[in-house]
Design a protein around this nucleic acid. Structure first.
Length: 610
RNA sequence: GCGUUGAUGGUCUAGCGGCUAUGACUUGGGCCUUCCAAGCCCAAAACCCGGGUUCGAAUCCCGGUCGGCGCACCA
């Protein structure tokens, strides 16, 4: 079993992730989040909101998951979100039709499936594998298509990304933020891609959760007002240059921006923010890097693009976040299709005085003179130069007809006007998170199989000797030695308490009413503090500790007979397995501080060892 | 999508023409038990789906579904 299998086995068994539709045999590319998985995921999303909505002030919006066709025509998904495929009739191998044609002609990527089929036939292209005949090329679009309304209805698509919502709502958002750049908006929700062959579990899904943020920025100023906040943060960067050498390096955000490795402060800031977020939710910094897109891999309109990648045991480096400067590409595209200008009016620091030549035809006189042609004449006059307008008889050409206008029907002058700003199409900085992949990354990075004997030696915990076996004499001891290969291991999920789906387990030492009652009282008090708590009284205490280790519960509270005497309970720390003794009174505050205030465990009570 | 390989209780697995389908862990009920899983008793729980071959199929054959791997794909 490799690590992926172990993590998945645990995830399945403990209610984190299940194959969807298992009852009916399942369906590829879909996963259910079980009770604990669902909670864990929601907590990740909630921290994401704390970062982007609360701290950064990019408000959240919610758009339909079904979009109308125009939206995806503008975004390029209708035309470009598909690949022309074609298969060999002989060996069945599938190829990208445009790739086959690429060697023969340029701009193969712009051809339709029909055109590609024609080229393949004309040039007699055969299967690169076996030389067999190829069948007709066809478009495979990765969007799920549907119909809106009854009958033929209207074409609709399940959105392949959440980002378009923010672009389509751009004007409303701009008003909401009182037309002041930069501003941003986020959306967390489901997106859909009809993948050809989804694999790798939750890494590639047909329905998945994205958290995307679009920051609309002044293209002339990509400095970040709060850059200093992260300027000295260290990042692991795998830049274009570093990729040549095959080696990532550590540097500060400031240095990366100054040296031009990262294009500008806006990107640098957002990469650092991403780094902070991922670390906070439990991605191991040692298994995290930011990889820059290579020139040929970047979308043609993008200025710079960085992926946060995590090291996974089976799949190697996996992209979990993309952070790109998409320029004004999306807004321009929607402008074009919707025939609406999308811009923000940006005021200058100082109004500019501009001199320009202004022509003012006197319509009161032109009208009676030229009747229906008056408007055209006026327009023609406006095009003339000062010199021509200065003549007493001005000649203009309207619809091929030369007309003469006397100089008294038109005024002109050089005017100085005050211009206090201009219309700007913002550039978009887009951090785009794949929540499901982050979820898996957290699971894998939190997963641990601890050798218990070794741990006990290291942490100075008491090693449990099996007394029974010792009593049985030398033979039993020999048995034990022979079984040495099967050293006891402990499965632990080292979730941070910020995301753990269960934060505290309340456990009566024995299944007895006199212990259960105070335990249940503690349970209620913790719930009042809005902590995620579970109660478990089945099996031995050790077994329950292990159960909670597996689901990553950071703290356990145990009620025993001493509790009845002196009103104290045991708090156990998941990672160190250490225990302290603390009074029941105020226990909810102590746990709250351990979980949310980073209180040191040893300070939570008196050291305790059994 | 092509090729290849696999599919047995919740999990991991034995069985590869003839059984009431193996075992372990887990789970539930109880006993025992005063702090780190596997002490005792009891119980629950499985042959992926559909065809075919055969007196008889978990086992052999075909198709499908799902999983792994390789190729292609990953906008």
């Amino acid at each position: 079993m490799d690590k992926y299998e172990k993590v998945f086995e645990l995830a399945k068994r403990r209610g984190f992730l299940w194959n969807s539709f298992e009852l009916y045999g399942g369906s590829r590319g879909f996963y259910d989040y079980g009770p604990l998985g669902s909670t864990l995921k929601r907590r990740i999303e909630q921290i994401w909101r704390e970062f982007y909505v609360i701290q950064e002030g990019h408000m959240e919006i919610e758009c339909p998951t079904i979009g109308i066709e125009d939206v995806f025509i503008a975004s390029g998904h209708v035309g470009g979100f598909s690949d022309p495929l074609c298969e060999c009739k002989n060996c069945g191998e599938a190829f990208r039709a445009d790739h086959l044609v690429e060697n023969i002609m340029a701009a193969a990527g712009t051809l339709s499936a029909e055109q590609l089929t024609q080229v393949i036939k004309e040039k007699g292209i055969t299967c690169p594998e076996c030389g067999g005949e190829l069948n007709d090329a066809y478009e495979f679009n990765l969007m799920f298509k549907t119909t809106i309304g009854p009958g033929t209805g209207r074409k609709g698509y399940l959105r392949p990304e959440t980002a378009q919502g923010m672009f389509v709502d751009f004007q409303r958002l701009s008003r909401f933020y009182r037309d002041k750049l930069p501003f941003g908006a986020v959306q967390i929700g489901k997106s859909y891609r009809n993948e050809i062959a989804p694999r790798q579990g939750v890494i590639r899904l047909r329905e998945f959760t994205q958290a995307e943020c679009e920051i609309f920025t002044d293209p002339r100023n990509k400095k970040h007002p709060d850059f200093e906040r992260f300027a000295d943060s260290e990042l692991t960067l795998y830049s274009q240059e570093a990729q040549q050498k095959g080696e990532a390096f550590r540097t500060t955000v400031r240095e990366a921006v100054e040296k031009g490795i990262i294009a500008h402060e806006m990107l640098g800031y957002n990469i650092a923010l991403t780094n902070e977020f991922l670390t906070k939710v439990g991605i191991d910094p040692a298994r995290l890097r930011f990889r820059q897109h290579l020139k040929d891999e970047m979308a043609h309109y993008a200025i710079d693009c960085w992926d946060a990648e995590i090291a996974t045991d089976r799949f190697g480096w996996v992209e979990i976040v993309g952070i790109a400067d998409r320029t004004d590409y999306d807004l321009k595209a929607h402008s074009r299709v919707s025939k609406t200008d999308l811009y923000v009016y940006v005021e200058y620091d100082e109004p500019k005085m501009l001199t320009r030549f202004v022509v003012k035809p006197n319509m009161g006189k032109l009208g009676p003179l030229f009747k229906g042609k008056a408007k055209a004449v006026a327009d023609a006059l406006k095009q003339l130069s000062e010199e021509e307008l200065s003549k007493s008889q001005i000649k203009v050409t309207v619809d091929g007809e030369e007309l003469t206008v006397s100089s008294d029907v038109v005024d002109f002058a050089e005017e100085t006007v005050k211009v206090s700003g201009e219309n700007v199409i913002p550039h978009v900085i887009e951090p785009s998170y794949g929540i499901d992949r982050i979820f898996y990354g957290i699971m894998e990075h939190a997963f641990d199989e601890e050798k218990l004997a070794q741990k006990a030696a290291e942490s100075g915990l008491k090693v449990e000797e099996n007394e029974e076996k010792a009593d049985k004499g030398p033979e039993a001891a020999k048995d034990e030695n022979e079984g040495e290969g099967e050293e006891e291991t402990r499965l632990v999920m080292h979730f941070s308490s910020a995301i753990a789906p269960v934060q505290v387990a309340v456990l009566p030492l024995l299944t007895r009413k006199e212990l259960a009652d105070p335990a249940k009282e503690i349970l209620l008090r913790l719930r009042e503090k809005r902590l995620l708590v579970s109660y478990d009284d089945s099996g031995t205490i050790g077994r329950r500790y292990r159960r909670n280790d597996e689901i990553g519960t950071p703290y356990s509270v145990t009620v025993d007979y001493d509790t009845l005497q002196d009103g104290t309970v045991t708090i156990r720390d998941r990672d160190s397995m250490r225990q302290v003794r603390a009074p029941i009174k105020g226990i909810e505050n102590v746990l709250y501080e351990l979980i949310y205030r980073g209180r040191d465990f040893e300070s939570a009570g008196k050291p305790f060892n059994f």
